[in-house]
Amino acid sequence: MLDWGGNIEAYGIKSLRRNQPVGQQVFFLNDFLPLKHGSLYFPCVKPSAQFSTDIHIFHTDDGDWTLLLDATEEELRQKRLQQKGNEVRLLRKELERMLEGVNKDSQKDETGTSPIIMFRELGEFRDVAVLFADIDKFTTYSETESPEVMLKTLNYFLDAMVRTITDGAGVLDKIIGDAVMGIFGLTPTTDTAADLAVKAGIKMQVNIAELNILRRSTGQSTFNISIGIASGPVAVGMIGAPYRKTISAIGSAVNIAAGLQKQACPCEILIDSATLQNIREDRSCFSKTHKFTNKHESLTAYSYKAPL
């Protein structure tokens, strides 16, 4: 450092002396020297509030070299990105918390405002739309891939699906393997439950299509999803341990939605007639299709096919 110079005082290093252990003179290098082989790189170290430095240390036959580079600019640049990213993730968590009603104090929250979702913990009937979405051929894929790769892929797709539900004012009921179940109509909105669910379903197909384009461009495997939506009164309530409560919905709309999803082709959305009737927006994108049986009962299903 003495021989090469540079503005070492800007790094808080004063009166360096030769033949004295560097760790005693530059405290933040103490644990890194001597280096016996290889190299070390520590970005954005702030030994005091005044400056930020990148530390490079590398070993040569002549001994260890230490290079300090001003990282003030780099820190500011990274801060902008990381701050935004982390804040968004915290917000999302907060939103999920509100929607899932995990907050056990939500009924009497300190600000005195009423929680977003209100129903008696013991359960009550609500008119909702239930959405099931399943990743096509994922089971086959999971058998050919290592668990690590498989889980990573699964998370990508589930994340896109779950986000579409929560972003569309739905509540995630559960994730079952490679399928998700969402409930719409529990939060106060001006849209009908059917409108919300159908909009989310279509958005989900779009999001997955976009994700596939991205993955295809980097040579990763792609998947399509099939969706079933049904509407009607269901019993909703909270179940689980006091620390981990989740919403649970029980009713024939749940079974019908699951059944419709099973019959839907990849990229398709199948809805029941109750859902169709409750759509206030454009229904023309749905066409009447085959009969669909649910527990010996014959029902009509309506289909939407996502453009490929």
Partner: peptide
């Protein structure tokens, strides 16, 4: 207010108890 940390920030403080004193980095 949340201000995320980039890299690492180093602080120092001396801890005293009845039994020991140590300087923490």
């Amino acid at each position: 207010k949340y201000l995320t940390t980039i890299g690492v920030k180093i602080d120092k403080k001396i801890v005293h108890t009845a039994d020991f004193t140590a300087k923490l980095l």
